[in-house]
Simulated scan of single mutants.
Amino acid sequence: MSTETGYDPELMAAVTELGSALRGLVAASVRTTVPPAELVQVAATARELAERLGTRTRERHQLPELDDPIAFRRVYSPVTGVGSAVAPPLQIRPDADGPGVVAEASFGLQYEGPPGFLHGGMSGLLMDQMLGTAAIRAGRWGMTAHLELDYRGPVPLDTPVVLRGWVAEEHGRRTTMAGSIALAAEPERVLVEVTGVFVTPREDTLATYFGDVVDASGQHRPPGRATDATALHEDR
């Protein structure tokens, strides 16, 4: 175990490698035009691999070994997790051109809603993470209480886009957030405008939500704050 980084670098490298391979498989599966016989063979192989991974599993309330909610490290987050087969994954960093945070991405056909465009529900998932991360960076961590999206135009697939999130207003335990999705080539033309409200839970609510959480070794380890955001990628 690495004492400097706080996690096993060999395990992190392996999880990252598997996540990358699985994302490649998912992307290929929605683009392929191979004949049915080949699809059946690949499906059989995929089931065999799933059985191998299923020989050791964790329960719902058990954190993965690499996760650290306090450090915002969530390796299987469906938005930022390096080990997730469904995450893009986004690399969220401080926004040098404005308040809050920013990320760039290009979404493949596995995220398709209307033909050729990003599924609207994916916009909500992505921006919930963006706003939550922006709130955390401002010291305003909390849980999503309200999320509202205004779809001004469809987000094209296989096209670079830029996502932003920032704090709009602070009031007690409530933080009002704002954000957007735009084409990287036209960042001023917003395609999706987002507002959200994040609320810091009271201590008794935290205990109700997360009192059963244990770490990878089975030790009781409820998080002291409610978040699924990952660490920011600081500019080098």
Rank of each mutant, 00 (worst) to 15 (best):
T16W: 00
L39E: 00
F117Q: 05
A27W: 00
A44Q: 06
E4V: 14
R60N: 09
E51P: 01
M127R: 11
Q41T: 10
L157Y: 03
V101M: 04
V214M: 06
Q91N: 07
A207R: 14
V197A: 07
D8C: 14
A46H: 06
D95I: 13
A138S: 14
L232F: 05
A216Q: 02
D158L: 14
D8M: 09
Q219F: 01
A178I: 02
G211V: 08
A105F: 03
R225V: 10
G54H: 05
V15W: 09
M122G: 01
P9S: 01
V167I: 12
L147G: 09
L206Y: 01
V162I: 13
G132P: 10
Y151I: 03
R236N: 04
T175N: 08
E186C: 06
D228L: 13
A50S: 14
V167Q: 10
G113M: 02
G54P: 04
T45R: 11
A37F: 10
R137T: 05
A96V: 10
F107W: 03
G132Q: 07
V194D: 03
Y151E: 00
T208I: 07
E203V: 05
S77W: 08
T144D: 05
T16H: 04
R189D: 15
G19F: 09
G6P: 04
R47G: 08
V190G: 03
M130C: 09
V213L: 07
T176N: 00
L49M: 13
M1V: 07
L63H: 07
D212S: 08
P187H: 09
S217K: 14
T195Y: 01
Q110W: 03
R140T: 00
A14F: 04
M130P: 08
R152P: 11
L191V: 07
V161P: 04
T133H: 12
P154L: 11
I92G: 03
T5G: 00
Q110C: 09
V214N: 01
D215K: 00
T144M: 05
L53D: 00
L25F: 15
A134F: 05
H220Q: 14
H171C: 13
E17V: 00
A105W: 06
V34I: 15
G121V: 06
Q219R: 14
G153W: 06
G24P: 04
H119T: 02
G153P: 01
A145T: 03
G211P: 04
Y7D: 02
P9Y: 00
A207M: 03
R202S: 12
P160H: 08
P35M: 02
G121W: 12
L53C: 12
G108M: 02
D95G: 08
G172Q: 07
F198S: 01
Y209Q: 13
R236Y: 00
H171Y: 09
E188Q: 04
P9F: 01
G218Q: 06
M127H: 07
D212H: 02
F72W: 06
G108E: 05
L191W: 10
F117V: 00
A207P: 00
L11R: 13
H171F: 12
L90S: 02
Q41K: 05
G6A: 10
V162M: 02
E59D: 15
R60G: 02
S77D: 15
V162W: 03
H233N: 06
I70A: 15
V194L: 04
I70D: 12
Y209L: 15
L63N: 08
H171R: 14
T176D: 04
H233I: 04
G6C: 07
T133M: 12
D128T: 07
R23K: 08
L11G: 01
A28G: 06
T195V: 12
E51I: 09
G132M: 09
